[in-house]
């Protein structure tokens, strides 16, 4: 009887030792990965012709971490053309005469070849 009791105690002890999965249900959250933060936009947009616009690039420096260093801004139009800019003022972009044009704007570090998640800008003539 004593042995039975000891073994039962050992069994319950082992049951108590069962490891729980502490990582279950944890989801990774990053504001920059989930495109919740708009960090680049176009401003001062002036139409030059039906298919060309002039605009300035604006980076919201206060929305990106201080440690982030970028060298260029990449602009991709909806056709897939990508242009790398190191300047931000008075830049010319191709637009669509028929309707709106969507631009994807990303920060780029040429040294590390890393790119940020794109911010979107939609131009409606």
């Amino acid at each position: 009887m004593k042995k039975v009791f000891i073994l039962l105690c050992a069994l319950s002890f082992l049951n108590a030792c069962k490891k729980e999965n502490t990582l279950e249900g944890i989801q990774l959250i990053n504001l920059f990965d989930q495109e919740l933060v708009d960090i680049i936009t176009l401003e001062n947009v002036i139409p030059i012709s039906c298919d060309v616009i002039r605009a300035d690039l604006k980076v919201y420096e206060d929305r990106i971490p201080d440690t982030v260093i970028y060298t260029h801004i990449i602009v991709r139009d909806q056709v897939g053309n990508a242009i790398r800019f190191s300047e931000t003022k008075s830049l010319y972009f191709i637009s669509s005469c028929d309707g709106s044009t969507t631009y994807e704007l990303t920060l780029y570090n040429s040294k590390t070849r890393k790119e940020s998640k794109p911010s979107q800008f939609i131009y409606i003539p």
């Binding site: 502490t22 990106i64 940020s116």
Partner: peptide, 21 residues
Amino acid sequence: FEKEAGKYQLLYQQSFWTEDH
């Protein structure tokens, strides 16, 4: 592995670049 996962979770949360994500 739990510690490692915690470390990478933190690094992910602090990362900015897509490649790092």
